[in-house]
Design a protein around this nucleic acid. Structure first.
Lengths: 153, 153
DNA sequence: ACACTATTGCAAATCGTTTGCAATAAACCA
DNA sequence: TGGTTTATTGCAAACGATTTGCAATAGTGT
């Protein structure tokens, strides 16, 4: 059986923990890996049902939570209002990535910017000292219109 | 009647739009203005009920939404998981503010960092060109432990 | 003071997500 | 290969945060 890298890695972890690789999980994993815009559970569910109409939404959520607990995806909310989580497949090798969120179509685009890393290094220390905080993480989120939405506007 | 700046401003807008300044709204506005850590609706509700036990949670939500629609507060989610909105009173004069979120006590601390503004100026153009995006806004969120939580850890 | 209608409290609905449970099906073993 | 074990599924019901319909209440301009 051909496996996408993600599915292969997950299968290993699964085996090691007495878990089982099911058709549903494989489907969800493959869709997650293909997708470039970090999908929400609903989006993944809609896609998955094209291949397996009997798949249940709660299975999608359970799979995503399982993946999250083991560090294979990380959830993010981009919309401050009625917000659903987007699931971001984690590439262990890639450094810190930042995100752009299209406020029209809800699509998410990843980018990395070395200058940002550098600045964050400074800022973190400075802010930490100034306010007495312990800064563990920094996320930069840009928002606006993606290429497609900008074109059709 | 003594009015906090926020309440005064809101009253003006209210009048201009045929709205009414009620005791509930005044209470919520004053608490919002006093509070330094951007409170959630529930937090505001709990505080407000100390003065007015008959206040209803839906009134808090309605007031916050009304304020949001007119640009007096802006909602933000900091926790990527089970997340509630925090409401951030908007100071028209202050420039772009960024946020620190304590992952232990959920407190939010504002800060401004001119260097970030500067960098964003560069990045925005670069990212925009590179990915064909139109970048309208940028938010930097730091997270970790606030002073109090860091001390007691 | 009166009338007009914006706003309230209440209860029920909503949205995204989670959970209990009995039925199903991977994985391990004879 | 078939049988056993138990992790995983589908379903329906529960969940927490937020929103809504509605009749009762109370600001505001006259």
């Amino acid at each position: 059986m051909i496996q996408t890298p993600l599915a292969a890695q997950v299968t290993q972890t699964l085996r090691a923990q007495g878990g089982r690789m099911t058709a549903q999980r494989r489907l969800i994993l493959d869709l997650l890996q293909e997708s470039d815009s970090h999908p929400t559970a609903e989006e993944l569910y809609a896609l998955a049902r094209q291949s397996d109409p009997s798949l249940n939404l709660s299975t999608v959520y359970r799979t995503l939570n399982w993946l999250e607990e083991r560090g294979f995806v990380s959830p993010r909310r981009f919309d401050d209002n009625h917000a659903h989580k987007h699931f971001d497949p984690v590439q262990p090798d890639a450094g810190h990535v930042h995100h752009f969120h299209c406020r029209n179509c809800d699509r998410v685009i990843e980018f990395s910017a070395p200058q940002v890393e550098q600045l964050l290094g400074q800022i973190r220390g400075e802010i930490a000292r100034q306010h007495g905080l312990r800064v563990d993480d920094a996320a930069l989120v840009l928002s606006g219109l993606c290429m497609d939405c900008a074109a059709s506007a």
